[in-house]
Design a protein around this nucleic acid. Structure first.
Length: 920
RNA sequence: GGGCGACUAGCUCAGUUGGUUAGAGCAACUGGUUUACACCCAGUAGGUCGGCGGUUCGAGUCCGUCGUCGCCCACCA
């Protein structure tokens, strides 16, 4: 057995074990006959990503689940991988090219994509290396990437199938356009941000009444060249007479009609709206209703085009805004400007305002929406905490109600190119999408590729990641095989993710699973749903914020580098700390102070193990049975029964935490048991018996038993230190197997193993030890209050009778040791002039051998008396109430009786003490 | 505008189906070189559980209402 260093050196331990685990394939997840499968699919981070605090929490939780599953004997598989992250990655490489003065068009599609692959191979996937530092036990041999060949095949197959099933269509619609990335975006990729700007009030001259004007407010004068009408509300009395007349658009100067439409708010601005169908969603709808033309004055890159007229051609949209305002002023059309703040949609990736733009895109009508709803309402999929179900269902509802389809095409090069080919020589306008002579849709492509041109667009990244739970297992090829990993591991067990992507990802995965993981069907039965869902439990982890409650972000600089934290606190410390403060799906306010507890805890654990090692030779620790063999039940004390009982309870509590997904309660229960019960009380109490040759072996064996079970319970959250101690304390036996491949006894098994060997655990011991603890605490408090806390030579007396006296007798040495007192002599009369403390076992008196401050002692006792009186009043009121006696459960009534009796006894004793104080 | 959530000790949070006189960590204060641990030990202080009302024998817990704060969705140019 290796000796244990005085200070816990996390780094050496962590690096060493991770290497061994990975080297020995300890994380490999495989089909194992007879074992229950347990699979977690990692939410694939962006291949460009770096580890941040959110990842730490998310992946620690996943690792806890997967390691626990291994200890429970399940065939556990944590499937890792990364996402190609279309826009993010392409933007990254384009930026690099720009530094060399190049644009992606200079390279051409093929060369550019090569460049991105090269970049990925060099810089991508850093995050996966960082996850190893954290201790993540992913099956790295399976590391998947959404652009891998097999994965791409799944993505294209899904597209082709959905197309054939009628869910996918191509359409000219308003969509979100990013002028920097020059692609369409889905609503989810657009972030609304409040922007300070100006509100321009303009006047347009009436054509029919020269010299008269209508006032219009706008925030975007640069688009007025695209105006095709002015709209007012039909009920607006101010403008009623003007509807049907015309105004002069100032530039390019043209007649445009005044129309009435209910989309206009009478009370907003001037109540008159300039209608620019090409550049605003509402305006576009108004345009549709009134059959207005669409004048697009912007180029795809956000500069103005020929339709805008000079001097705007080629000018950037923000520059044009200023120039347009100036020109309006010169022409006398600008009435006033005022500061204004409104919400503007920004491209999530490029962080520039998006343009609503009329473009031809591919759209997907979501499949199996109703079934996705039922999957949750009927309990096939459970959210933890449960309330997130509401968010999920709310999303589905909105989507269905508002008929929101998913824009799945992106005008990028990095991604899955849409598997659609157009026959050469047929103009886009003449294309008939239902005619296979015109449009070819397949995974393999047409047989005569020379006659076809492939669609330029690629698919939205989410249109690949929504297949993650089954594409990674070889769908669609593996669908037929009953012996496949797909049929063994799917549906996966638990998904761990953030609430922000419940719709973006979680709901879509559910829909994809329901649509594809079985034969094509219009609607599904319950049994179909149960078989097709991608996961059974969804654990939603909270969002990490800084200590002031702000979101962590690069620009605020309030996001610590997790690797620094690992450096400082150790991976185990960080893991324990972050899970310990992670409440159930609530936001988490992060501060380093709160992580310290994790490091301190590891140190405590380390030292307890060290103490064990220093206390005596280890016996055979290679199995629970071997440890039990070393315990002589004749030498077991109440303390031993108590700590073993607590160990069984703690094991059960941990089981409950996992069953109910109370991830934060799990480390808390472990912390309390170990620090308070085991270290502060049990170890301290057993020190005397460890020195006694007669009892030493038994006491050490009990410690070993506790440590053995405890390390197994704790391992999922702090894998490194537990593995190190497991090996150092000899629990692995000769074989040297890893802790995580051992089997954890459940509470029932543990109890029966103990009782089979040692006889029934004494449940009375619990109450007895609690009473002894109270007595010791009272004595310590008395010493502290009388400033003799550090003295060990003070004598105490105990006034007790019957049981109390006996119990104290049997624990006398422990009490003297833990309370640090000279003696505790039994007396039958109250000694006078001594400060006293009343406990359930009896009254303890501190012999100061000098006069006490009677007034202070009286005050102290009276304070306690008042507290007890309050309790007695409450108890009597309760027990005097017949309705309480009749309706409360017997146990509650009895509890109240017992408590009242105890309180009264204590009250009486304190009263006696007060009476016995000298006057003064 | 629609939805979700929070409010418990100075701070951050526990508190499982209503059932003893509400807990922890940190911070504060007092005292400790107890040969496992100062990343420690012992002790003290600190809360009318956001307000009001209701249900109940009994409410931190359930219901209503108000207040404050946060998040998500929508986005009036």
């Amino acid at each position: 057995m290796a000796t244990i260093d005085k200070a816990y050196n996390a780094h050496a331990v962590e690096d060493r074990w991770y290497e061994r685990w990975e080297g020995k394939g300890a994380f490999r997840g495989e089909i194992r006959d007879g074992a229950e499968p347990y699979c977690i699919m990692i939410p694939p981070p962006n291949v460009t990503g770096m580890l941040h605090m959110g990842h730490i929490l998310n992946n620690t939780v996943q690792d806890i689940f997967i390691r626990r599953a291994r200890l429970e004997g399940k065939a556990a598989l944590w499937f890792p991988g990364t996402d190609h992250a279309g826009i993010a990655t392409q933007t990254r490489v384009e930026k690099k090219l720009r530094e060399k003065g190049l644009h992606r068009r200079d390279l051409g599609r093929e060369k550019f994509v090569d460049e991105v692959w090269k970049w990925r191979d060099e810089h991508g996937g850093i995050i996966l290396k960082q996850l190893r530092k954290l201790g993540a036990s992913c099956d790295w041999e399976r590391t998947s990437f959404t652009l891998d060949e097999h994965y791409s095949k799944a993505v294209l197959t899904a597209f082709v199938e959905l197309y054939r099933r009628g869910y996918i269509y191509r359409g000219l619609r308003m969509s979100n356009w990013c002028p920097v990335s020059q692609t369409a975006l889905s609503n989810e990729e657009v972030i609304m941000k409040p922007q300070k700007g100006l509100f321009y009030k303009m006047r347009y001259e009436l054509v029919e009444q020269p010299g008269e004007y209508i006032h219009i407010s706008t925030t975007r004068p640069e688009t007025l060249m695209g105006d095709v009408a002015v709209a007012v509300h039909p009920d607006d009395e101010r403008y009623k007479d003007l509807v049907g007349k015309h105004v002069w658009r100032p530039f390019p100067r043209e007649k445009i009609p005044i129309i009435a439409d209910t989309a206009v708010e009478k009370d907003f601005g001037t109540g008159a709206l300039k209608v620019t169908p090409a550049h605003d969603v509402v305006d576009f709808e108004i345009g549709q209703r009134h059959d207005l033309p669409t004048l697009d004055v912007l180029n795809p890159d956000g500069t103005l085009n020929e339709l805008a007229g000079e001097p705007f051609v080629g000018m950037d949209r923000f520059e044009a805004r200023k120039v347009a305002a100036k020109k309006l002023e010169e022409l006398g059309n600008l009435v006033e400007t005022e500061p204004y703040e409104n919400n503007v949609g920004f491209s999530e990736r490029a962080d520039v305002p998006i343009e609503p733009r009329l473009t031809m895109q591919w759209w997907l009508r979501y499949p199996k929406v109703e079934e996705a709803r039922r999957a949750v309402t009927e309990g096939h999929i459970r959210f933890h905490p449960k309330r997130w179900e509401k968010t999920y269902l709310h999303w589905l509802e909105t989507m269905e109600r508002d008929n929101i389809d998913w824009c799945i095409s992106r005008q990028l090069w990095w991604g899955h190119r849409i598997p659609v080919w157009y026959r050469k020589g047929i103009a886009a306008a003449d294309r008939d999408y239902d005619n296979p002579e015109h449009v070819h849709v397949s995974v393999e492509g047409p047989e005569d590729p020379e006659n076809w041109e492939q669609e330029e667009d690629v698919l939205d990244t989410w249109a690949s990641s929504w297949l993650w739970p089954f594409a990674n297992f070889g769908w669609p090829d593996e669908m037929e095989s009953q012996a496949s990993e797909l049929s063994y591991f799917y549906p996966t067990q638990t998904l761990v993710t953030g609430f922000d992507i419940i719709f973006l990802w979680v709901a879509r995965m559910v829909m994809a699973g329901l649509e594809f993981m079985g034969e094509a069907k219009e609607s599904l039965e319950d049994a179909d749903i149960a078989a097709r869902i991608p996961f059974k439990d969804v654990y939603i982890n909270g969002l990490i914020r800084d200590s002031k409650g702000r979101k962590m972000s690069k620009s605020l600089g309030n996001s610590p580098d997790p690797l620094d934290l690992i450096e400082k606190f150790g991976a185990d410390g960080l893991r324990f700390g972050i899970v310990n403060i992670a409440p159930s799906g609530q936001d988490i306010l992060f501060s380093e102070d709160r992580i310290e507890i994790g490091r301190n805890f590891c140190n405590k654990l380390w030292n307890a193990a060290r103490f064990r090692q220093m206390s005596g030779e280890s016996g055979d620790n290679s199995s629970l049975e071997a440890v039990l063999q070393r315990i002589d039940k004749e030498h077991l004390a109440a303390y031993d029964h108590w700590i073993l009982g607590r160990l069984v309870e703690t094991t059960a509590e941990v089981e409950r935490c996992f069953a109910q997904f109370e991830v934060h309660a799990y480390p808390r229960a472990l912390y309390e048991f170990f620090w308070s019960d085991y270290c502060d009380w049990y170890l301290e109490a057993s020190k005397a018996r460890m020195k006694d040759p007669a009892t030493q072996a038994t006491v050490l064996a009990v410690q070993d038993l506790v440590m053995r079970q405890y390390l197994q319970l704790l391992h999922p959250v702090t894998p490194f230190i537990t593995e190190e101690l497991w090996q150092n304390l000899g629990f692995s036996g000769e074989a040297g197997t890893f802790l995580q491949s051992t089997q954890l006894p459940v509470a029932g098994q543990l109890r029966s193993a103990i009782e089979q060997q040692l006889g029934q655990l004494d449940d009375q011991a619990q109450a007895e030890i609690e009473a002894i603890k109270e007595l010791i605490t009272r004595i310590r408090a008395l010493k502290s209050e009388y400033n003799v806390a550090s003295r060990r030579d003070v004598p105490f007396y105990l006034l007790a009778e019957g049981d109390g006296r006996e119990i104290v007798e049997s624990h006398l040495q422990t009490i003297l040791n833990l309370a640090q007192i000279e003696s505790l002599e039994a007396v039958s009369e109250r000694p006078e002039g001594m400060p006293a403390g009343v406990t359930a076992l009896g009254t303890a008196f501190l012999d100061l051998a000098q006069a006490i401050d009677v007034a202070a002692e009286r005050q102290r006792l009276e304070k306690e008396l008042a507290k007890l009186e309050k309790g007695i009043k409450a108890g009597e009121a309760k027990l005097g109430n017949e309705k309480f006696l009749n309706s409360a459960p017997e146990a509650v009534v009895q509890g109240a009786r017992d408590q009242l009796a105890a309180t009264k006894a204590r009250h009486e004793e304190i009263q006696m003490l007060l009476n016995s104080l000298p006057n003064g």
